[in-house]
Design a protein around this nucleic acid. Structure first.
Lengths: 217, 217
DNA sequence: TAGATTGTTAATCGATTAACAATC
DNA sequence: TAGATTGTTAATCGATTAACAATC
């Protein structure tokens, strides 16, 4: 299911940014090396996990010493390499889409190139400092911004149609906030964030006495 | 790691609301039974998975026929039972916290009982129709709203401290949007949503040619 | 050298899925 | 009965983790 990408398991790939964050937080603290144990602690994972993950990138550690902090940071940064500022298209500007747009607008690594919707009442509104455009403009927007990431925040029932359209226009990375499973070609990456689901799971746990429950991070 | 809760694996529990959603969408369509294959299709999972998941709840299906749609819906609803309207406390009202508050304010199943922050510039502001209160008010808020769900949207470096405070005040369900791992007692459930991480993973895939990539739902 | 820590193998674990007998 | 579909077992798979030899 989850599979390797260039030799790196998807699960490892998802942890690299977490490591990077921990290393960045430590940079400038004077510390020059870091052990798998320390990095594990800071990242909330198992030390063996850290060593295994890092071994996919190559052998940057020194036995008996640890990893050179700056070097490791540079290497991980090079691997996930988010140097560019990525264009983002927000599809669906309802409550969630509006909230997301306002959040995304403040991130340095991403810039919103368009907000689109099909609802005439929403089109023309100003959200996050931009005017909401009709969904018909998508082709133009994506032609102007090749490689854009699609953020899908539509109602569930139209999510698949919107995803198809995005994919048809060349989008290969989608962040799906819609409450629906998405069927996409193999070359398209979809990450799903289902806030309603998360809240529902939490309310289940809140309701059901935590007999023999486990820490879930 | 992920563990059973009352006999139901955490992974199954996370899919039950997805099934419920699919069943609800079909209710009123006139269809009276549904097969594991149909439900699987609508939910984006494997048919065997559906049958296995449902078998944890009991045997509601009829061989050769399928599952009674309304009955199954009622049973799943009973299991995850989100009948109540859950109180939610938002901790940290920066960009993300504000965006989340505006989204949460529109959900029927949850009601925001307080927004708190420590920043004097933020305290007193109106967000999602409510006045942001000082973090010191948390004890009072949670005393007035026992069983409240905590939504953590602070900077990563203070997330653990805030989580500790929430837990100390009796919160046992936390939705963590902060970019930090959380260490909590075993009886506390934490669900993590890391938007920055998701975007970073997508930008990695956007940047790296999708040689032999897999569909990721 | 003695102590520490990596890199990697092997064991473990949980989750997914194929397969099929049971049975409507 | 014949066809369909469940419920469940066993096989598979990937991810996690313990353990330890290598080695700084």
């Amino acid at each position: 299911m989850a599979e390797t990408v260039g030799g790196i398991p998807e699960a490892t790939l998802a942890r690299l940014p977490v490591y990077l964050r921990a290393l960045t937080a430590l940079a400038g603290s004077g510390q020059s090396t870091i052990s798998s144990g320390e990095l594990a602690q800071a990242s909330g994972v198992n030390p063996a996990q850290v060593r295994k993950d890092l071994s996919y990138l190559g052998s940057y550690g020194v036995r008996g010493v640890g990893y050179d902090l700056d070097h490791l940071r540079a290497e991980i940064g090079r691997w996930i390499g988010s140097t560019r500022c990525w264009p983002v298209v927000v599809v669906g500007v309802g409550n969630l889409g509006t909230a997301l747009a306002n959040y995304l607008a403040h991130l340095d690594a991403f810039r919103i190139v368009a907000l689109v919707d099909t609802n005439p009442e929403v089109i023309g509104r100003t959200v996050a400092g931009r005017t909401v455009r009709p969904a018909d403009d998508l082709a133009q927007v994506l032609a102007d911004n090749p490689g854009a990431i699609g953020v899908l925040a539509t109602p569930g029932r139209v999510a698949q149609t919107c995803a198809d359209e995005l994919v048809g226009l060349g989008v290969s990375s989608i962040l799906n906030f819609a409450a629906a499973p998405l069927d996409v070609p193999a070359h398209v990456t979809v990450r799903k964030v289902d806030l309603g689901l998360e809240l529902q799971i939490l309310s289940y746990h809140a309701q059901n006495p935590p007999r023999l429950q486990q820490k879930v991070i």
